[in-house]
């Protein structure tokens, strides 16, 4: 039990922090929603009613989609793009999908390799891209959820202001939708660029996101 907790500490701690902050968002979001209802003359919601509302759904989904976009782009971009000196990057000469031998697929797979890495054909092709593909699918689904829930919340707001509701296509092309989307994308892209560049010159002792403290700035593929 103790060993299992230690071996999975990263996923357990982040899972719990995720749930705690989501609950916090539900309470803070509900208070904000009810404040606005006082102005619009609508009814106040309980926490459970708020969690089931499109207002909560769009606020959650717009952040999820940008996080999954971040990892989708990062996973695929780091296959081809490198940053000399960054532990987030592989060596400059390894840019690209690399050889089967280096990736241990097909006839180079070992006895411990996952079955689909040994299988060859479409299964190995899919498995070899599964991390990026799943991130991409989660991004697409979250973005779709943002558009569906966002339209619902937007239309409720429009009706409160005595305006006609809009179709999904109109919402997907609206300033509201793109403002929500781009404000999240820019912050994720800034964070990605920051870790790539700052990790060239700065260190965090013991973190796999950093090079060993004493490594020179131009060493690329090391973690400490």
């Amino acid at each position: 039990m103790k060993r299992s907790l230690r071996d999975n500490g990263l996923s357990i701690v982040f899972g719990l922090l995720f749930l705690a902050t989501l609950v916090g968002q539900a309470f803070a979001g509900r208070a904000d929603h009810n404040d606005r209802q006082l102005v619009d003359g609508g009814r106040e919601l309980s926490v459970l009613q708020y969690v089931a509302s499109s207002d909560f759904a769009v606020d959650v989904a717009e952040n999820w989609q940008s996080e999954y976009l971040q990892f989708f782009l990062y996973v695929f971009a780091t296959v081809w793009l490198v940053q000399r000196g960054s532990p987030e990057s592989k060596l400059v000469e390894n840019a690209g999908p690399e050889s089967d031998e280096r990736q241990k697929v097909g006839r180079y797979a070992t006895a411990e390799s996952p079955a689909w890495a040994r299988a060859g054909g479409w299964r190995t092709a899919v498995f070899a891209r599964s991390l990026g593909l799943v991130m991409g699918v989660l991004f697409a689904l979250s973005w779709l959820a943002q558009s569906v829930a966002g339209r619902s919340a937007y239309n409720a707001e429009r009706l409160a202001q005595l305006q006609d509701p809009v179709s999904w296509a109109e919402y997907a092309g609206s300033a509201e939708f793109w403002n929500r989307t781009l404000q999240n994308w820019q912050s994720e892209l800034l964070a990605m660029g920051s870790i790539v560049v700052l990790s060239v010159y700065l260190r965090q002792r013991g973190s796999p996101e950093s090079k060993p403290v004493g490594d020179p700035h131009d060493v690329t593929q090391e973690s400490g």
Binding site: A57, S142, L144, A149
Partner: peptide
């Protein structure tokens, strides 16, 4: 996290 994420994803689509 995967299980919770899936449940929340369904909730998000359902909420609308």
């Amino acid at each position: 996290r995967n299980g919770v994420g899936t449940a929340l994803g369904v909730l998000l689509l359902c909420a609308a």
